[in-house]
Every structure is written in structure tokens, then in C-alpha cells.
Write a protein that binds this DNA or RNA. Structure first.
Length: 609
DNA sequence: GAGCACTGC
């Protein structure tokens, strides 16, 4: 039975219309802002109408998949994992009775590799399609194809109310439903003149807001750890000077913060709270009680420069859609206000949407996945936005060199094995080769710990300890081996928490590395039975060097920098490397990224190129 | 002598 709460949701009045539309069309589009109830209700409507159907609902983020399944289970008063369940990495909470499965986009792509017909499901819902992640774009392409082969299959695309025509054209459907949500209005204010420095401007706006506006918490959007810490320091200083009775609690929120510090941003405060956040607060996380939003107008974007073959992580203006999304965060509880630290004129000139991810990342692993799913010609595969042809061709040729594909671009057994691992292709290649050479534990430790980010956590200004800590674990002029050693020492230590504290390590991060290692170990069991171990660092380096065949660099004395073998690009060893300030002649690296300079991250010295 | 936003298998 439908309970009263469910009937009050905006989506409820569309129930019969949508059911009818699904019956009559193979592909339908449902657009509606967050809060209209589409994600929790539509799977249930479908099930209540025909209890034989098996439904998959995809989400870009794993927490969303888990909490949505929990929410729906509660509404249907069933046990989570029975009728309704979820399936995300490290956590499969489904059973043979499960008919509504919430899963991540990446998980459904994995299922495609196992069964290209996806016969396990009758209806597939792709949610949050407007976010345009690589995974959901790829899923749309795969499902568009599959619809021709499986006439009974139904596909529902759900998105915010943007780019709907584009989706509709691509999926060749006219069945579009737009659901209005009941949200509160947000008044938007722009600054009248262009601001020189958004940190200064941010501080002034927050303080002015604080001293003149009625109660309600503030959410401030900044770009990264550095400007968040700057704003915080200046705010605290000025609050001290002003000696006002009106207190202001300053909290921070960005992904490199340890989870326990992040939690502080969610606690209710006696006084007004201001949360200084990155775009983690844009979609991933919702904070209750926010009435005011301040938007600096910038965001850090990671892109892949095709010609130079390097990643960049640089500041860029937000898109209009992003600016709206940020403003919307003020209207979740009651009428809110949004202050933009840029002029109305600047706003008008912003791009409508951010460039979709598939057009700005390296596609090596996506191409391998596509081959594993059985796509013959990936170059002509019909995606909603086609990536650069040259890049895809270069990726194909790299996969040939790794022997993942043969010379006709057909998937080899090795490529099949590689695609079964949740790793970048060069690491899959490395792990498989390392097993063959009998250095599996060393390789597993190294790969697992390199998968996790924010291994260390330092308070501002205390980072001079880093090299001291690294030297305790250092092995053989290699970040790969040194980090493997950190994981091994962590595993061997009894009191893990104090071990982490002593060495400024992030406990949760290492926990994650452990579960990554266990998962990789399980996957590897299906590929090879070999499990013998010898501690051979030279062999390790040799196999690694061969696996990172496109990531070699040599020191160029006249440039006082490294030259990448592939492109002659100049780069510097990252300060977080054990090789920082040393100048080994030849190195291999995991990643080359432009931030303030072009840096090589995770570096190992080798004897020759 | 600098420090990387976010997400996923």
C-alpha cells in the first residue's frame, strides 16, 4: 500500500502517466530537480504495477546507491537486501529475491562485461544522467545498442531539467516527463563590480552577512584546501579583533580532510555556522540548516591535455548550471539567499554546462572496458559526445603494446584478464606480470596503496615532517616500493591507530588500501594460481618499468628538470616523493600533472630507459 | 621547497 508520505510527493500525480508511458515506449526520459521523489518512487511504482519485473537503478556515487536502497526498503517495509537491495564495490547487499537493485554506474558496466544482454534486468534506470560522468555516458551508449537487440527491455533516463532535448535526440525518444519539485526560492545577488581577490571578497561577504542578516547557517564555495585555510584564518582573526558578541563558528569541508574532521561541519552549532567547502558540497554532501550560500565562482577541474599527454588540475570559472546548483543549496529548508562574488555580466558569459568528463579525460581504461564488452569498433561507437579520434586511436595502440589487444584490435586473453581488475590498464598489466614473476605480495601492497588518495594528513605548515617520515620507510629510491613498505608495516603493526598518528598517516585511507588489496587478491585468484613470493626489488622495478612503458623520463642537466621520453615535456619530481631533491638519471612515474608546475607523482628510479 | 577539486570498479 502507498502510505500518506509517498502520496504527498510531487511525483505522485504523474504515477499513472509514467506507468502508461513505460508500457508504450521502450525509452523514456524523466526530468525533475532533486526533491521531487523520482528516484525513490518510480522503481516502486513499476514494481507495484507488475511485481515480476526486475529493475536496476544506477547512481554515480556509492553512498547514494546504498542510502536510496535503504530508504525504499523502509518505505516498502521490507528487509534491506530482500526485495530491494544495493550492489556497490566491496558491498553486495542483494539476494535471489531482490527485484529492485540500486547500483553504481561502474557496477552495471561490470555486469555488461559478464552478460552483454544484461538479461538479469527487465528495466534499467540511469539516474543523474545530467552529471555526464564517463560511466553514465558509456551506459547510455550500451543501452541504446541493447534496445535494438532486446525489444522487451525498457530504459528510463532520469536527470535534472537540463539538456533534455540532447538526451531525447540521442536516445530517439519523444516520451519526456518533466516533474516540478516544490523547493523554496533563493534570492540571488551579484557583486556590482569585478572583484580582484576572491579570498578577500569571500571574507568580507561572510562577515557582512553574519552581522546584518537574520539567523541561518552559511555555506561558502571555494576551490581547494589552500583558499579554504586562507579564508578560515582571516575570518578567525577578524572575529577576534571585532570582539563582537555575535560568535561565528568556522568549519571546513574538503575531501583531503580526515573523515572525523569532516564530521564537524555537520554538527549543529550554538552560534551561526559557516562551512567553507569545495564542490564536495555541491552534489555529494548535503548540510542541514543552510540558508545562505556564497559562491566564489571558480572550481578546480581536472583535464587531460591530449597533445602534451599530461593531466592538468587548474582553476576555471563555474558553469551556469553549476552556479545554479550551488545557489540551490540555500533553498532546501526555507527561502534562502545566494551571494555571487562575480558580476551579473560575468555570469551571463559563463558556459552553460561544464564540458562532459568523457571529452576531458584519458580513455585508456574506458577503451579496454568497451573492448571487453564486445564493441568491435570503438572509434565509431555511438556516444552522446564523441571523444577525440586521435586520442582513442593512441589508446588502442597503447593497449596493443601491452598485448591487451592483438594487431587487429581484438581483445586477447591477457586483455580479458586485465579488464577483470578494477585498475588502470598499466597497473592490471603490472599485477598480472608480477604474479608470474613471483613478487605478488610486494606488487599487491604497492598497487593497493597507490590506489588510495590522501595517504598523509598534515596540519597547515607542518609538512616539513614529510620527508622525515618517508625516510623511515624508504626502499631503493622508489615511491612504489616505499609506499608498499608503509602498507606492509601497517599490516604488521598491532596498534594501528598510534602507528598512524606517529607517522601522520590517515587511518581510514590505509583501511581502504587493505580492502582494495583483499579484493585484488580475490580477483587475481581467478586469473592465476601462482602464489609464491620472493623479495626481489630489482625484479619489481623491471616489471614496473615494462608496465609503465609510456611513463619514462630522464634528467636533463641543462634544463634542471626531467624530460618525458614520449613528448619531451619538462617536468619536476613532486615534493611528496622520496626522490624529491635527488636527481636520479632515469625514472618512471605514475602520473604527470600540471598544478603550479608540471609534476611527476609516484616516482621510481631505474637503471636504464 | 610545495601542497589535488570530485567520483567509480
Amino acid at each position: 500500500m502507498l502510505n500518506e508520505f509517498r502520496m504527498q510527493l510531487p511525483i505522485f500525480q504523474f504515477r499513472d502517466k509514467i506507468i502508461k508511458s513505460i508500457r508504450e515506449n521502450q525509452v523514456i526520459i524523466i526530468a525533475g530537480e532533486t526533491g521531487c521523489g523520482k528516484t525513490t518512487q518510480i522503481p516502486q511504482y513499476i514494481y507495484e504495477n507488475d511485481s515480476n519485473l526486475r529493475i536496476a537503478v544506477t547512481q554515480p556515487r556509492r553512498v547514494a546507491a546504498m542510502t536510496l536502497a535503504e530508504r525504499c526498503s523502509l518505505e516498502k517495509q521490507t528487509k534491506l537486501g530482500q526485495l530491494i537491495g544495493y550492489n556497490v564495490r566491496f558491498d553486495d547487499c542483494t539476494s535471489k529475491d531482490t527485484q529492485i537493485t540500486f547500483l553504481t554506474d561502474g557496477m552495471l558496466i561490470r555486469e555488461f562485461i559478464v552478460d552483454q544482454q544484461l538479461k538479469r534486468y527487465d528495466i534499467i534506470i540511469i539516474d543523474e544522467a545530467h552529471e555526464r560522468t564517463v560511466q553514465s555516458d558509456l551506459l547510455l551508449g550500451l543501452l541504446k545498442n541493447l534496445c535494438r537487440k532486446r525489444k522487451q527491455l525498457k530504459v528510463i533516463l532520469m536527470s535534472a531539467t537540463m539538456q533534455i532535448e540532447k538526451f531525447a535526440n540521442y536516445l530517439e525518444t519523444e516520451a519526456i516527463h518533466i516533474i516540478e519539485a516544490r523547493t523554496h526560492t533563493v534570492d540571488v545577488y551579484n557583486v556590482p563590480i569585478r572583484q580582484q581577490d576572491y579570498v578577500e571578497s569571500m571574507v568580507n561577504t561572510i562577515l557582512q552577512l553574519h552581522f546584518t542578516q537574520p539567523e541561518g547557517d552559511i555555506l561558502a564555495f571555494l576551490t581547494g584546501q589552500e583558499d579554504i585555510e586562507d579564508v578560515r584564518e582571516i575570518l578567525l582573526e577578524r572575529m577576534k579583533i571585532s570582539n563582537q558578541e555575535k560568535q561565528l563558528e568556522v568549519k571546513m569541508l574538503y575531501s583531503a580532510l580526515p573523515p572525523e574532521v569532516q564530521m564537524e561541519a555537520f554538527q549543529k552549532c550554538v552560534h551561526r555556522k559557516v562551512v567553507l567547502a569545495t564542490n564536495i558540497a555541491e552534489t555529494s554532501i548535503t548540510i542541514d540548516g543552510i540558508v545562505y550560500v556564497v559562491d566564489c565562482g571558480y572550481v578546480k577541474i581536472r583535464s587531460f591535455q591530449i597533445g602534451k599527454a599530461i593531466d592538468t588540475l587548474l582553476l576555471a570559472p563555474v558553469s551556469k548550471a553549476q552556479a545554479e546548483q550551488r545557489a540551490g543549496r540555500a533553498g532546501r529548508q526555507r527561502q534562502g539567499q545566494c551571494y555571487r562574488l562575480y558580476t551579473q555580466q560575468t555570469y551571463e558569459r559563463l558556459a552553460k554546462y561544464m564540458l562532459p568528463e568523457i571529452l576531458r579525460v584519458n580513455l585508456l581504461s574506458v577503451i579496454l572496458q568497451m573492448k571487453a564488452i564486445g564493441i568491435q569498433n570503438v572509434l565509431t561507437f555511438d556516444l552522446i559526445d564523441r571523444p577525440d579520434m586521435e586520442l582513442m586511436l593512441a589508446n588502442l595502440n597503447q593497449l596493443v603494446k601491452m598485448k591487451a589487444l592483438d594487431s587487429e584490435f581484438n581483445l586477447t586473453q591477457h586483455g580479458k584478464n586485465m579488464s577483470s581488475l578494477p585498475l588502470e590498464p598499466q597497473f592490471s598489466h603490472f599485477l598480472i606480470k608480477a604474479y608470474e614473476c613471483g613478487i605478488y605480495d610486494l606488487a599487491l601492497n604497492s598497487i593497493s596503496i597507490l590506489q588510495v588518495e590522501n595517504l598523509f594528513y598534515f596540519q597547515r605548515g607542518s609538512k616539513e615532517n614529510l620527508q622525515k617520515i618517508l625516510s623511515k620507510f624508504k626502499i631503493s629510491n622508489s615511491d612504489h616500493l616505499t609506499k608498499a613498505n608503509i602498507l606492509r608495516k601497517y599490516e604488521e603493526t598491532q596498534n594501528k591507530k598510534s602507528f598512524c598518528k606517529e607517522n601522520s598517516l590517515n587511518h581510514k585511507t590505509l583501511q581502504k588500501a587493505i580492502s582494495v588489496k583483499q579484493q585484488l587478491k580475490d580477483y587475481m585468484k581467478r586469473i592465476t594460481q601462482k602464489e609464491f613470493e620472493k623479495e626481489d626489488y630489482d625484479k619489481f622495478k623491471q616489471v614496473l618499468s615494462e608496465s609503465l612503458m609510456f611513463k619514462h623520463a630522464f634528467y636533463s642537466p641543462q634544463d634542471q628538470a626531467y624530460k618525458l621520453k614520449q613528448t619531451n615535456q619538462l617536468a619536476y619530481i613532486h615534493p611528496e616523493s622520496v626522490l624529491f631533491n635527488q636527481k636520479p638519471k632515469y625514472v618512471i612515474y605514475n602520473e604527470v600533472i600540471l598544478t603550479k608546475k608540471v609534476y611527476l607523482r609516484d616516482v621510481t628510479e631505474i637503471d636504464e630507459l
